[in-house]
C-alpha cells in the first residue's frame, strides 16, 4: 500500500520534471545581474547570486593573496570577500556608498563575496543575444551582449573563484 502511494508520487514528480524541462527549452532567456566595476558594466548569472549586502565591518585575512580583501560575517557564516576591481584589472579606488558585496554560490556549496562599485539592475537577455567575446576580453568573460550602446560583459563565477590559487 505504501509502495503504491510511493510509485504514484514518483510518477507525478517525474511528470513535473519533464514539464519543467520542456518549458525551459522553449524560452531561452538568461537572467543576469548587472554590476558596475571601474566604470564598466558587467553581468553575473542571477542563479549564482545568493544575496547582495552593503559593506560592513571586514576582518583582514592574514597570509592571503591581495585579491582577498578579508572576511565578513553573514549572520554567523564567515565568508571571504574578494576584490572584483583587482580581478578585472581596474584601478584601485576606495569604496563608496554605492559599493556592494555580491555573494555568489561556489561550485562546492561554498559561498564567496565579491566587492563591486554598484549593483544596477537585473537584465533578461535572450540566449541568442549573447555572443562570444573578442579574443582579448580576458579569461573571466564568457560572453558579451549589447545593451543600448554599451557592451555588457558576462562573467563566469567559477573562473573568478579560480583566480585564487591555493
Amino acid at each position: 500500500m505504501n509502495a503504491e502511494a510511493g510509485r504514484s508520487w514518483d510518477a507525478l514528480a517525474r511528470a513535473a520534471a519533464r514539464a519543467r524541462e520542456v518549458r525551459e527549452e522553449a524560452t531561452l532567456m538568461r537572467d543576469l545581474l548587472r554590476v558596475e566595476v571601474g566604470g564598466e558594466p558587467y553581468a553575473l548569472p542571477v542563479e549564482r547570486v545568493r544575496e547582495i549586502v552593503r559593506l560592513g565591518p571586514m576582518t583582514k585575512l592574514p597570509r592571503a593573496p591581495e585579491l582577498v580583501l578579508g572576511v565578513i560575517s553573514l549572520r554567523g557564516e564567515i565568508v571571504q570577500v574578494l576584490d572584483l576591481r583587482r580581478a578585472l584589472a581596474a584601478a584601485a579606488k576606495p569604496p563608496t556608498r554605492r559599493s556592494r558585496i555580491v555573494v555568489l554560490h561556489g561550485e562546492s556549496g561554498d559561498i564567496a563575496g565579491w566587492l563591486v562599485d554598484a549593483v544596477t539592475e537585473v537584465l533578461r537577455v535572450p540566449e541568442a543575444e549573447l555572443t562570444a567575446p573578442p579574443g582579448d576580453a580576458g579569461e573571466l568573460v564568457t560572453a558579451i551582449c549589447l545593451r543600448g550602446d554599451r557592451f555588457v560583459s558576462l562573467l563566469e563565477p567559477d573562473r573568478m573563484q579560480n583566480l585564487v590559487a591555493v
Binding site: L61, P62, P65, G76, E77, I78, Q80, L163
Partner: peptide, 17 residues
C-alpha cells in the same frame, strides 16, 4: 565556523567566529 570562499586554507587559521 569554516571560512568560506575560494581560498581553501590559511595556515594558522582554524576558522572564524
Amino acid at each position: 565556523k569554516p571560512v568560506q570562499g575560494p581560498l581553501r586554507a590559511v595556515r594558522g587559521v582554524a576558522g572564524a567566529t
